[in-house]
Design a protein around this nucleic acid. Structure first.
Length: 720
DNA sequence: TACTATTTAATTTTT
DNA sequence: TTAAATAGTA
C-alpha cells in the first residue's frame, strides 16, 4: 500500500496523529495548524491503510458547512465517494437516529423540528395559557433556562426547586413546555441531543448495535462540546470505541451557549490510555501576527499551554490606529482598503471584524460612500425569514394537524377574522382538555364563540383540510407551489406596499425552487415533505445567496472563527466594547473575551490592523473609551502606531500604555473622557486635546459652563 | 383589526 | 440610535 499521498503533505506532529494506533487520541490544534487536515487525513488513513470500512466511521462537526467540507476533502483525498460514511453535526446525527428509531424514542413518526424562534413563540403562548403574571416572566429567559437544563441532560423530574419560588416556576414552565412539545410532536434543537442520548442510554441493544458499528469516532472542534454532546460521545465510545478528537482550548468562545472546554481534561481522565498530540506549527500567519496572538493569550490562566510558531517571515508589524471617533475609524479602514484594492488585491481577501453586529453600520456607511462592495455575514437566513416560516407552517399543519406552533402562526395570517380573543378561547379550551389547538378549534361550537368567529374558524379548518387533499398526490415542489397560493400568502405580500412585499413573494417562489432542487435521502423512511421540513429547520441556509461578487467581508469575530484572510481589521477595540462590558466583571468572561481576541488576531495571514476610537456613539449617546486592554498585551516590538496623535491624547506608548498610573500634574494622565474639576467652571469631561508640553490644550465640557478650550499649564485642572 | 405612538433595552450564534 | 414590543386609537 502506497501511503505517500496521505502522508506527504504532513509535518511530524500531524503525521503522528494521523498514523496513531487504534487508541483514543486528543489533538490540541492551534489556529492555522492544519486541524481539519489532520481529521481528513486520519479518516483517509483508517479507510485506506487500516482497512476500516467507511461504514464504521462516525465524524462529528458543529456546523453543516464544516461537515460538507470534511466529506468533500475526504472524498478528494481518497478519490472515491464515501456515501455511507456518517459525517454530520451533532444535531444532524441525532436527528437521523431519532427518525430511524422514532418508536423507541417515543416520538410520532412525523415529528417536526422547531428552531429557536419557534421555541420562543411557543413559550410565549405557553405563558399566556398559564395562570401567571406574564409581565414577570421573560420568554427568552425561560427559553434559556429550558435549553440550559437540556444541555446538561436534565429533565424536569431531575430538578429540585431548592426552595426557590422563582426556580420552582421555571421548572413548572419547563414541564408545561415539554407537554406541549410532546403533544404536538415538536422537538427543539437541544431536545434532539437529549433524546438521542436517552435513546441509547435506555436501549441496551440499540446502543450495542451502534457501538459495534462505529469503531472509530472523529470529532472536530472538541472544545465546543456541551455536556449532553460529550455524554453522547462517551456513551457511544464505551470502552472499545476509539475516539479521535481535535480541538483548541484557546479558541473556545461558546461557553455562553453551553460549551465546556473542561471536556478536554475530562477526556484524558475518561480515556486514560489517550495519547496527546499538539499541533503548534502554524501555516497561516506571519511571525509578527503569531507572536502578538501568543502574547495576548498568554494572559489567560486556565490553559493547556501551547505556543504557535512559524517558519515564515516576521512580516509587517501590526498597525494600531487610534481614531477620533467611529467615523474616523471607518474612514481610516476605507482608506486602507482603497490602497489594498488599488494594489490589485481581491476585496474578498480583506475582512473587517468587530465584536458586535451593531458596529457594522458605520463601517457599511463608509464603504457605501467609497463605493466599495461588501458583504455582511450573519443576520437572517433563508429559512428563517418570516414569509418562509409562514409557508412552512402551512406545510407542517398539512403534515401534522396537532402542531400548535404552526397552527397559531398561520391561523390568522393572512387575516381571516380570527383575532386574539378567539385564539385565546381556543387556547384555554386546548389547555383545559389537554388537546391540540386543532382539536380545540374543531370542538368549540357557537356556545363559546359568536357566529362570525365560529365561521371564520371553521373556514380555516376547511382550508387546511382542502389544501391537504389537493396536495396529497402532488410532487413536493407542486405541493409548496400550491400552498403558497392557496393559503393566501402570495396575495397578502403582493398587496404589501413597497419593495418589501415584492421580495417576500420572490422568496416564496424561491422556496418552490428549493423544494424542486431538494434531494431525498433514499434511506429515509419519512415522507418527502417531512424530510424537506426537517431539512429546512436543521439547515437554515445562507444569509444571502447572491451571486458571488468580489467584496470586502464584514462579520463578528465569532463568525470569523475557522476563516482566514490576508488582510484583517479588528475594529472597535475599546474597553467596554471588546472586552465587552458585560464580560469584564467575571474573570471567566474576560478570559473568554481574550480567547475571542486570539481568534480575531489569528484570522490574519499577512496584514493586521487594530483600530479603536476615543469617542464612539453608542445607543445614541457619545461615549469615551480607553483602548482595549488586549492591545496593550501585545508587545511593542510587534506594533507600529499609525499616525500617532498628540502625546497627551495618546496613552499608547509603552510608558503611558499601562494606563492607570496617571498622577495629577502629569500631563500624560489627561485622557479623553477623564473627569476634571476647574476652580471657576466646576466639573466637566475632557473631550479633546492637542499640542504638547506648555502649549497643550484641552477641550472640556463643563456641566454648567459648557465646552471650553483651556491651556493645560494655566488651567490647574484637578483630575477626578 | 390595523395603524400609530410610546416605551424599553441594547453581546456573541449554530443547530 | 434604533429596533422591537407594547399600548393606545380610529
Amino acid at each position: 500500500m502506497d501511503v505517500t499521498p496521505i502522508l506527504e503533505s504532513l509535518n511530524d506532529a500531524q503525521r503522528q496523529a494521523v498514523t496513531a494506533a487504534a487508541e483514543p487520541m486528543l489533538v490540541i490544534a492551534g489556529a492555522g495548524s492544519g486541524k481539519t487536515r489532520v481529521l481528513v487525513h486520519r479518516a483517509a488513513w483508517l479507510i485506506d491503510v487500516e482497512g476500516i470500512s467507511p461504514h464504521s466511521l462516525l465524524a462529528v462537526t458543529f456546523t453543516n458547512k464544516a461537515a460538507a467540507e470534511m466529506r468533500g476533502r475526504i472524498e478528494a483525498l481518497l478519490g472515491t465517494p464515501v456515501g455511507h460514511l456518517w459525517i454530520g453535526t451533532f444535531h444532524g446525527l441525532a436527528h437521523r437516529l431519532l427518525r430511524r428509531h422514532w418508536r423507541e424514542a417515543e416520538l410520532p413518526q412525523n415529528f417536526q423540528i422547531i428552531d429557536s424562534d419557534d421555541q420562543v413563540r411557543l413559550i410565549k403562548r405557553l405563558l399566556r395559557g398559564m395562570d401567571v403574571d406574564d409581565s414577570l416572566w421573560v420568554p427568552r429567559e425561560i427559553q434559556y433556562f429550558i435549553n440550559a437544563q437540556k444541555d446538561e441532560g436534565l429533565r424536569p423530574k431531575h430538578l429540585d426547586d431548592e426552595g426557590d419560588a422563582n426556580r420552582r416556576q421555571m421548572i413548572a414552565f419547563y414541564e408545561a413546555y415539554e407537554e406541549v412539545c410532546q403533544r404536538g410532536g415538536l422537538v427543539d434543537f437541544a431536545e434532539l441531543l437529549l433524546r438521542a442520548h436517552e435513546l441509547w442510554r435506555d436501549n441496551a441493544e440499540l446502543l450495542a448495535h451502534y457501538r459495534r458499528r462505529f469503531a472509530h469516532l472523529l470529532v472536530d472542534e472538541f472544545q465546543d462540546t456541551n455536556a449532553i454532546q460529550y455524554a453522547w460521545l462517551r456513551l457511544l465510545a464505551g470502552d472499545k470505541g476509539v475516539p479521535f478528537v481535535v480541538g483548541d482550548d484557546d479558541q473556545s468562545i461558546y461557553r455562553w451557549r453551553g460549551a465546556r472546554v473542561e471536556h478536554i481534561h475530562r477526556f484524558q481522565k475518561d480515556f486514560p490510555s489517550a495519547s496527546l498530540v499538539k499541533l503548534e506549527q502554524n501555516y497561516r500567519s506571519t511571525a509578527a501576527i503569531l507572536n502578538a496572538a501568543n502574547a495576548v493569550i498568554a494572559n489567560n490562566s486556565s490553559r493547556l499551554g501551547k505556543n504557535l510558531w512559524t517558519e515564515g517571515a516576521e512580516g509587517e508589524p501590526i498597525r494600531v490606529y487610534s481614531a477620533y471617533n467611529e467615523r474616523d475609524e471607518a474612514d481610516f479602514i476605507v482608506g486602507r482598503l482603497r490602497d489594498w484594492i488599488a494594489q490589485g488585491n481581491l476585496r474578498a481577501d480583506a475582512a473587517i471584524l468587530y465584536r458586535s453586529n451593531a458596529q457594522s453600520r458605520v463601517l457599511e456607511e463608509g464603504l457605501i460612500n467609497a463605493r466599495i462592495p461588501y458583504r455582511v455575514y450573519g443576520g437572517l437566513r433563508f429559512f428563517e425569514r418570516a414569509e418562509i416560516k409562514d409557508a412552512l407552517a402551512y406545510l407542517r399543519l398539512i403534515s401534522n394537524r396537532d402542531d400548535d406552533s404552526s397552527f397559531e402562526r398561520v391561523v390568522n395570517r393572512p387575516t381571516r377574522g380570527i383575532g386574539a380573543r378567539t385564539v385565546e378561547i381556543m387556547r384555554s379550551y386546548a389547555r383545559a382538555n389537554s388537546c391540540s389547538m386543532w382539536r380545540a378549534a374543531g370542538a368549540i361550537g357557537s356556545d363559546e364563540l359568536n357566529s362570525r368567529a365560529a365561521n371564520a374558524v371553521l373556514a380555516f379548518l376547511n382550508l387546511i383540510e382542502k389544501m391537504a387533499r389537493d396536495v396529497a398526490e402532488l410532487e413536493l415542489q407542486e405541493k409548496v407551489d400550491h400552498v403558497i397560493y392557496a393559503s393566501g400568502l402570495v396575495d397578502l405580500f403582493k398587496k404589501e406596499k413597497g419593495e418589501k412585499g415584492e421580495t417576500r413573494v420572490e422568496n416564496l417562489l424561491e422556496l418552490v425552487s428549493a423544494a424542486k432542487g431538494f434531494e431525498r435521502d433514499p434511506a429515509e423512511e419519512m415522507s418527502e415533505l417531512d424530510e424537506f421540513l426537517s431539512h429546512a429547520a436543521l439547515e437554515a441556509g445562507e444569509g444571502q445567496a447572491d451571486a458571488w461578487e468580489d467584496c470586502v467581508q464584514l462579520m463578528t469575530m465569532h463568525s470569523a472563527k475557522g476563516l482566514e484572510f490576508p488582510l484583517v481589521f479588528l475594529s472597535g477595540m475599546e474597553d467596554g466594547l471588546f472586552p465587552h462590558q458585560r464580560s469584564v466583571a467575571d474573570p471567566n468572561g474576560l478570559e473568554e473575551e481574550r480567547r475571542l481576541c486570539y481568534v480575531g488576531i489569528t484570522r490574519a495571514k499577512q496584514s493586521l490592523y487594530i483600530t479603536h476610537a476615543d469617542q464612539r456613539r453608542l445607543h445614541g449617546m457619545d461615549n469615551f473609551s480607553q483602548p482595549s486592554r488586549f492591545i496593550s498585551e501585545i508587545p511593542d516590538e510587534f506594533v507600529e502606531e499609525v499616525r500617532p496623535r498628540v502625546q497627551v491624547s495618546r496613552p499608547m506608548h509603552s510608558t503611558s500604555r499601562r494606563s492607570a498610573k496617571s498622577a495629577p500634574g502629569n500631563e500624560l494622565g489627561i485622557r479623553l473622557g477623564q473627569r476634571v474639576r476647574h476652580a471657576k467652571f466646576g466639573e466637566g469631561v475632557i473631550l479633546n486635546c492637542e499640542g504638547q508640553g506648555a502649549h497643550a490644550r484641552v477641550e472640556v465640557n463643563f456641566e454648567t459652563a459648557g465646552t471650553k478650550w483651556l491651556v493645560l499649564s494655566y488651567a490647574n485642572l484637578d483630575l477626578m
